[in-house]
Design a protein around this nucleic acid. Structure first.
Lengths: 405, 405
DNA sequence: TCATTTAGTAAATGATGCGGATTAAATCTG
DNA sequence: CAGATTTAATCCGCATCATTTACTAAATGA
């Protein structure tokens, strides 16, 4: 049970101030005071401590002066150099890594197209470690300047325990991957999280859901993921487990029995089916080269009937699941993200149609379904943001209960 | 944005102390101090204020003395007479009302078997008002002693706005039922909430989920409801909407297309189908008398094939939905509640089997599915508890930031 | 009777947020 | 160009609160 003492008070208010500075860029103390509804005095005290700790910096010449009179505002912003973090995104066929500063600006990024599946955990950890070290060097930094590393991966992840319960990446279950990496990074703490949670946070911080406190993110990649933002907080299941959307059961395309969503609508299943129905055609070659998805996208633009039917089934299955999620959460926005969405309307149109058909009338218009095409390193940026989020809220150095120096 | 000030601190700690007293019955200050991790002094101060306000009372003669030496503990407990509240549960065919004291002990209860469907809102409000007044009188109280009224009803309810978005009870949507009743009760504030939320809270306070901070409640009555307890808090969708489980889409029994869960597994649908397949038999009469569910239960015990098949379909559909919910929330416990469960294993066994079949292996054992048969007035007790919960947390009289008198 | 033990309270201390007065730094005005 | 005005930020004093330390209360045990 968290007991409320003055220290907690300070921590809460400090977080609010940090959050306002992060969200509203260079911002004057008065405006922080307005937005947070804290008194000017309190804001002054907190920002003084933050400046003292080097977490924020002043930015004289405020630029736009709203009223031409009076003492000019001193703008405050995050000190980009206050901390550096690394974000990693693991996908079955590629590792993406990004180094960012305290403002979540990407300083360097790295993409390693490596097939991770079937590799032992230690090999994967080695690859990630090498990539992280390389990426840090690329950014002109050294390991001891790094405040934290966050690794996002598909599947069921228990963040607080640092354990990956199940993932297409690992052959085994219950992999303590956070500890595995922390051990390799010489004192730098690594955390893990579900990859969708990272996109969800990224959407909240930089993306289409800025300022929106309730929304869902559906990631459609080799696996399927669900991120839930609820009341401005990432929703995690009991024990901090992240749900795996692919494990949801849906109405199958054959119209008979039931099927796991992952077996109908994930990139993995789409590729497998596409390959099956294109065997013996001129297109088969692309699948052997690992260029299957490009071929599917290409054939979708030419409206190849088999592919269209296949994508329609996938879209309908996703629509079924999403309709149920909207029924449960009534979110004002649903964001679709992930590489598979390159297939475009052939996938998304049946999805929207199915959601429209299945949603109860009372919820017909609550959710705005949007597609967000993102570059790969943004996922890694989301991972970095996850670490920064902890740093912002952490009892930082002396910013805590006023250690006198 | 909620700013943290000393007053908030006090409110939080006061709530923790109240919660400890509520949960652990007669309890000494030392033990509160242990459990809440607040200092003995703080507990002393807070309990003094609570005593002063009459919210708790001392209970000398502590009873069991753990160590035979030392100054005896003074036990504290909720003052039953500190406040009285009324809980109401609306079902399509009956109104249940209960008056409780501050400890949520039921003082009087009332059950009105009235068919509410198709009645105009004002008529329903009149009926509820009359029932409330009657129930208060039965408890030996008067209206001005009542601190609050909470009405639970099936469907989609927006608690904070006091609006029922959609319900089988009302013919219309967006009914401002809370305002409707508050206007009739002469100053006593009425709130509304989804009926499952009330059971969920009741399970958390008095039921099978005491001390459990994550669990789901599935209510199977004329309608279907879902209650979610997450991190010790009732989970509500965006805008404070409560989800309606009946609107979820499931795999239909015919194995083709998809169907709304309510059309397969609610008591309404079960009765309709049972009536259809029993037309022309000796059993038909029971349905005309409105005794359909009793007849279904009776036939289930004799394993009548039609009924068994029907209940099996319903159980499978529920299992499908519940498997998906477990995938999403990974709750350690799922509680099934509601009148329809009287059908027993004919319904519950297929449900368990389906959940077992559909759950991904990684989640196979996380959730314990239990059935809870409850009497009707317990639902109303849950409604009362919902009001008490607000009272416990409210800035009470002078217990707030020390108004000097 | 008096030491011992446990429960509960009082006084002192320090952290915190807030309101009102004050200072700082610019523009406006005559 | 000097003083008035305006807006931003800070200083000072106060009230609240939780905590630590010392103390009192009320029982048992020797």
């Amino acid at each position: 049970m968290k007991t409320a003492d003055p220290e907690l008070m300070r921590a809460i208010n400090r977080f609010h101030v940090m959050d306002a500075i992060r969200r509203f860029g260079p911002i004057a103390r008065v405006e922080i005071s307005d937005r947070t509804e804290l008194s000017a005095t309190t804001v002054s005290a907190i920002t003084a401590a933050l400046l003292d700790d080097g977490l924020i910096i002043t930015h004289q010449l405020g630029g736009i002066r709203d009223a031409a009179r009076g003492r000019p505002r001193v703008m405050l912003e995050l000190n980009p150099a206050a901390a550096y973090v690394v974000g990693v995104k693991l996908a079955p066929d590629q590792i993406t890594i990004a180094t960012t500063n305290f403002r979540a600006d990407v300083l360097s990024s790295l993409m390693l197209p490596i097939r991770l599946q079937r590799q032992p955990v230690s090999v994967i950890a080695d690859l990630v470690e090498d990539g992280i070290r390389r990426c840090i060097t690329d950014a002109g930094l050294t390991m001891d300047q790094i405040s934290g590393v966050c690794i996002g991966l598909p599947g069921v992840v228990e963040r607080v325990a640092g354990i990956c319960r199940a993932s297409p990446i690992f052959g085994e279950n219950d992999v303590p991957f956070a500890a595995e990496l922390t051990a390799r990074l010489g004192g730098v703490v690594a955390t893990i999280d579900s990859d969708v949670n990272l996109v969800t946070l990224a959407e909240h911080w930089f993306g289409q859901a800025r300022g929106l406190d309730d929304f869902l993110v559906i990631s459609v990649e080799l696996g399927l993921g669900l991120g839930i933002m609820h009341n401005g907080e990432l929703f995690r299941g009991a024990n901090g487990l992240s749900p795996d959307l692919g494990d949801l059961m849906v109405r199958p395309p054959s119209g008979n029995g039931s099927a796991r969503l992952a077996s109908v609508a994930s990139e993995t299943s789409i590729l497998a089916e596409a390959r099956a129905c294109l065997t013996g055609t001129e297109h088969e070659h692309a699948f052997r080269l690992g260029r299957g998805m490009e071929k599917v996208v290409e054939l979708a633009t030419t409206r190849e009937p088999h592919i269209m039917a296949l994508l329609e089934h996938a879209g309908e299955a996703l629509g079924f699941a999403i309709a149920n999620l909207i029924t449960l959460f009534a979110p004002p926005k649903v964001i679709l993200a992930g590489a598979t969405l390159a297939a475009g309307d052939a996938l998304v149109e049946p999805l929207r149609r199915t959601v429209g058909e299945l949603l109860p009338p009372s919820l017909a218009d609550v959710a705005d379904i949007v597609v967000h095409h993102w570059s790969d390193d943004i996922w890694a940026r989301g991972a970095a943001a996850m670490t920064l989020r902890d740093l912002y809220g952490a009892p930082w150095n002396t910013t805590g209960p006023a250690v006198h120096r």
